[in-house]
Nucleic acid binder design. Structure first.
Lengths: 202, 202
DNA sequence: GTCTATATAGCGATAGAC
DNA sequence: GTCTATCGCTATATAGAC
């Protein structure tokens, strides 16, 4: 019996892995249950006995990918503001330009009309976490007299959206022409500088 | 003969209208050629004789929707910087939160892997136009000594991305909970203020 | 050019053997 | 639980009449 349950769990994970891989690289509609079963190395009926239908499989597979990111370490390192913002912007930039993040984002957008629950899960687990943490940091700065920010969440969103920049837009759209890495680096630095100018204590 | 050509042109336009409407509100895969033909009031074969296959119809229909937007009027009205930026931010915000713009954007994202040409058309006709025009305005400001912006395109992207804000993100993802209009208005105003503080002449 | 009718294939989901 | 085989349906695309 344990053997059976264990083998079943293994198959379940194989199905999740296969579905996850297919759903982020192709759209919901073009991924067939046959392909999932084939890639997972199980029969189609096994997929159905584990997840019931295609929607449930979709949410289980993608939902697992939206776990909170871990870029908060830079925020509370105790370094000076300029250093913290630079490091944070670097980490955030790396994250949002990664293939993983872009794939999940594209899938959520593509399915937002037919499967809104998925986008909700994504927003709470991803963007909302980052915004909240960064807002907290900015509020601390103000409390310490190191910055003059009356609405920390506004400022957090401003910074994060800015850092995304043109590069993120080009990658979202899968454009063939991207910015050179050096140019994007200069852009991010420019964001940090102007943010500090705007919110420094006068 | 003229009559024939004219009637054919009418049907072609009916097909384009129907396809455009369906493609922006549903995904590529869920729009069937049957529905396009039905909504256009023609037979399926007529659709095929005009556009050959589904991909060609898709590009013809969506490509027509990506025409350049007209929000540049606020930029060269001769008003003072603060007024111009406020008006421009308002118009831009209205644009990017409109159902039309969101539909096109979602469709381009959703199809960016399978139909990258579409995203290229969209970027050139939409975002690139706005960025270019606004960069030009910022360069003028600097030339007139009214601002201190060494990289106009960087600053333009910073401003435009900022103004999108959390509201655009929520709408892209079709989240149920949006910001109150008043809060988004305050946010946009905050963006204008901080942009001016960061780039004013010192 | 435009229609009706149809060929062909793939889909999600299920039935029944083991 | 897992498999093979299949149902019922809809899709893209085409053939042939007018």
């Amino acid at each position: 019996m344990i053997q059976t349950r264990s083998r079943s769990e293994v198959k379940r994970q194989q199905i999740l892995d296969a579905a996850s891989e297919l759903f982020v690289s192709h759209s919901f509609d073009t991924v067939s249950m046959d392909r999932v079963a084939q890639l997972a190395g199980v029969s189609k009926q096994t997929v159905y006995s584990h997840f019931g239908n295609k929607e449930a499989l979709f949410e289980a597979a993608i939902g697992g990918r939206c776990s909170a990111y871990q870029i908060n370490e830079a925020l509370f390192s105790g370094e000076d503001v300029n250093t913290v913002l630079q490091q944070f912007a670097q980490l955030f930039s790396l994250l949002i330009l990664s293939q993983e993040a872009l794939s999940v984002f594209r899938t959520c957008i593509a399915q937002s009309l037919t499967h809104p629950q998925l986008a909700e899960i994504y927003f709470e687990a991803g963007p909302e976490q980052v915004i909240s943490l960064f807002s907290e940091y900015l509020a601390q700065l103000t409390a310490q007299g190191k910055a003059d920010i009356s609405e920390p969440r506004f400022a957090a969103v401003q910074f994060l959206k800015m850092v995304q920049g043109e590069q993120r837009m080009r990658k979202e759209l899968n454009l063939a022409v991207l910015l050179a890495d050096a140019d994007h680096q200069r852009y991010v630095q420019s964001c940090v500088d102007m943010f500090i100018r705007a919110y420094q204590v006068r």
